[in-house]
Design a protein around this nucleic acid. Sequence first.
DNA 1: CCTTTGCCTTGCCATTTTGCAAGACTAGAA
DNA 2: TTCTAGTCTTGCAAAATGGCAAGGCAAAGG
Lengths: 297, 297
Amino acid sequence: MQNWDDLRLFLAVAREESLSGAGKVLRLDPATLGRRVARLEKTLETALFVKSPQGYALTAAGAQLLGQAEAAEQAMRQATAGLAGAQDGLTGQIRIGAPDGAANFLLPQVCGQIGAENPGLDIQIVALPRVFNLSRREADMAIAVSAPDAGRLVVQKVADYHLHLAASEAYLGTNTAIRRVSDLRHHRIVGYIPDMIFDRELDYLADLGLARVPLASNSVSVQGHMIQQGGGVGVVHDFALPFLPGVRRILTQDVHLARAFYLIRHADDRRNQRLSQFAELLAGALRREVARLEAMA
Amino acid sequence: MQNWDDLRLFLAVAREESLSGAGKVLRLDPATLGRRVARLEKTLETALFVKSPQGYALTAAGAQLLGQAEAAEQAMRQATAGLAGAQDGLTGQIRIGAPDGAANFLLPQVCGQIGAENPGLDIQIVALPRVFNLSRREADMAIAVSAPDAGRLVVQKVADYHLHLAASEAYLGTNTAIRRVSDLRHHRIVGYIPDMIFDRELDYLADLGLARVPLASNSVSVQGHMIQQGGGVGVVHDFALPFLPGVRRILTQDVHLARAFYLIRHADDRRNQRLSQFAELLAGALRREVARLEAMA
DNA sequence: CCTTTGCCTTGCCATTTTGCAAGACTAGAA
DNA sequence: TTCTAGTCTTGCAAAATGGCAAGGCAAAGG
């Protein structure tokens, strides 16, 4: 459909069963309605009405469209209706669960910005290095690196992000050069504590064939600092690099990991205006922030 | 909302987060988009975007509208998508259950007309003087005089109609004049067989204080003919009068009954394109036919 | 049989909307 | 600091859209 407004006029004509009747309702000239209905029929390549001097009667195709158009009308009505209650911005308290990468490097800026736009809103960030249990209402929504398939949850993909191997300039200067992946065997690896990996998507090192992890933490933030201090080589989120001056990506040609963040909510909250609004806001801001930081890396 | 098309543009701008980006997608000038977004914000009395030389970023209100707009988009997409399959009109067999008043005086013309528009369609009218059992699939849809509250059914009001007392010219000429309702005690009454009344809405005569029914039938068509032959006085549908020449309404000031027809379908059939299309067509045609016949009465 | 009434269509003109081009502004790079 | 590249805005001409009035057609009423 090239012009949604044509459907609005169609609806009026279908209900009044005449151009003149619809014209009175919409305060438009019958000639205008006739022309726009004609345009709609042309783009749809279907006769919607049987025209006669007695009025416009729906054809079978037109009758079908009527049903659909009424659904669309409902949607349009809802779209505008909700705005009244949201005039003064969000208020109250919202708690977000997130893996600590997002919690440390993304959410602070994002939530700060949203909080500034909505003075009445209190945002709580719960950083957790494990799968989050939304069912117990530990948080209103959660960010995850994979989409759960069980439970009554609503999942929405938020942003793609990328990871690369990295080490500090100092470390690279004082250790043997790294030219290919196999060279990593002779270096100290920084990564997750193997038996505390809570999501298959985080098991990067296994993908690289690296079993031993001499320097490990369950927190990517801690891992980042280990690498920054010259502790060794590890996988770093691109969006974390601007916060880790002195850390440089290596082997960017050979190792290039892509993951995504998902925003998860209770299915029950789907109709909650307030949370939906916040979720949209959060998702958009996160996507922008990831893009911004990755561009800086 | 005064112009639905503005929401389509809003959606593109919100997704691209810039006028110029949306302009490329929609093949519209950024200036146009800017002006129309401004118009939308004005009619909604809400700031939807934060404008900057870096682009258009959603405000909280805008983020909320985005969610709603996506629902509307879905509806618009569906509206047009379904039409492709319906190009050649309806086909197959559809069975309609109806009380015999509608079955005799309304459905023949209506179904004839729909059948003519859809050559591949076979329509069956099942006239039944009792509550219809859709659950057993005795019919695809049914017309009723009251909306059932039980069962997984979809109910849609189709048309209002009216009833009045009536008798044949011949009868009125040879019997004592009827000036008020109480005069009816001395006349032969035509009506339903009392213990076969299947719907509270049909128990007209009780409303008039008339308990005895000397001439009774379970079929309004038969009742109509009884009245036409001078058998007595009875309640007649206004839309049946054009089919009963010689029958005249009486006491129209004192007795004025209003009822309505409802179209009932299985909840399961709600998503059935073909039946939905037919139902829309039937409902519209019935409404028109009742209006036409009542205007003639 | 003619008139009236209601409807749709078509042509013409005013109005609105659109696209283009130029100006202004910000962020990031040299 | 200056320059570049990317935005958004504003002014003006062109295109489209919408309103008006006249014409045509079918049904209802005298």
